[in-house]
Amino acid sequence: MSVTGLALILFLTFHGCMNVVALFSKEGYNWICEMLGANWYAVAATMGLALLALLHIFFAFWLTFQNRKARGSNRYEVTDKPEKVEWASQNMLVLGIIICLGLVLHFYNFWYNMMFAELFPGIHYDPAPADGFGKIVCTFSNPIYVVLYIIWLVAIWFHLTHGFWSAMQTLGVSGKIWLNRWKCIGSIYVTLLMLLFLVVVLGFAFGCAPSLCSACC
């Protein structure tokens, strides 16, 4: 869980950086899309990524199954959560499922169109598959999508604030001092990362992304 999780965080970082490009330059973004879309190594990386994600999901369910068995069939009548216990840590699976649902939406909005168009040319898409930028503009002009994406980002934020230090803990690179450091680093990092995504969503939702301005000027 920890290794796949960390790898996925790394992926999100790249993804986030790419998105930011879209804020500033339509051409730049589309160039990246094109570059990532048409190379065999990008496809391989995508497959690797998919494998990581699937492993992460598979382990999540497998461990949850084991844990529920270990918990036993009897439930407590009264439970009182200590303050120390983070809400996210107790709900990683639920958050994970929300994230998966968001992912489906995301695939439907972007990736499906872009990726498959390249793999199976000949089918007509609108906007053009190569126009990733156009996709963004198109999607976030719909306020429902904006709200859904914000919910999604919040879920990911919760998932990662726990996930990051938890991964370090599981890998054994934590301790009395480093636990708090990892938590701090994790929170800041994940918050920045999610803000990055959020800015893109909001920037396009309210039409104030610099790239849009330059497009109209």
């Binding site: 461990l63 840590s89 107790q90 230090w165 009395k176």
Partner: peptide
Amino acid sequence: GNCTNTRACEAVCPKCETISNIAR
């Protein structure tokens, strides 16, 4: 079961054992 680092154990431990032990 497996540890998912919820820290519930540490919060209720009467002898204040910490999860830094788990990391170790």
